[in-house]
């Protein structure tokens, strides 16, 4: 049996023919769509390295079957920057050294983008820590990650204020 689904991936419409319903969103991105920015750290929802946004919400792409996502809008790390202009979260990760090896980083960043849009953590470091706890970092760049997310949250809020003013 073959399954045909359509996805919007980083703004681009894609039709995907799936010969196998077992393919997860993560493996679809990495092995079939050549979007390898999203990483696999556990394949079981335990590390957050595979975090992407589906319809604007952060999820673990390793625990989502691609076939179930027909019609979904998917954002990955590759689509976050605006050309050469980094997203504020990306810029903050560099500035606060929120990573070392960088392997967990795409997941951390997408998770942070999701967390910020959820709007429950604000710029309270403790809420950010809790909200980012689904993203393990073995290099243990947590200090910088928290600083980066807090900082990016503030900057993004300022930008929104300025725009609405």
């Amino acid at each position: 049996m073959s399954y045909s689904i359509s996805l919007t991936v980083n703004g681009a419409q894609r039709r995907v023919q799936l010969d196998d319903p077992r393919v997860t969103l993560l493996d679809l991105l990495r092995e079939r769509l050549d979007l390898t920015g999203t990483k696999k750290g556990c394949d079981r929802g335990q590390c957050g390295a595979c975090t992407v946004l589906v319809d604007g919400r952060r999820i673990n792409s390793c625990l989502a079957l691609a076939v179930t996502l027909d019609g979904a809008d998917i954002s990955t790390i590759e689509g976050l920057a605006d050309g050469d202009t980094l997203h504020p979260v990306q810029a903050a990760f560099i500035e606060h050294d929120g990573f070392q090896c960088g392997y967990c980083t795409p997941g951390q960043i997408m998770s942070a983008v999701g967390l910020i849009s959820e709007g429950h953590a604000g710029d309270d470091p403790e809420r950010v820590r809790e909200g980012m706890s689904g993203n393990l970092c073995r290099c243990a760049a947590y200090h910088g990650i928290t600083e980066a997310v807090v900082d990016a949250t503030r900057r993004m809020a300022e930008t929104t204020e300025r725009k609405s003013a």
């Binding site: 990760f93 560099i94 392997y103 980083t105």
Partner: peptide
């Protein structure tokens, strides 16, 4: 100095072994 590989790593462009195909 901030990491010279920083942009590659925050944009998903840094290629780790398993990213090759």
């Amino acid at each position: 100095v901030t990491r010279r590989d920083g942009v590659a790593k925050v944009t998903g462009r840094a290629t780790y072994a398993a990213d090759n195909h």
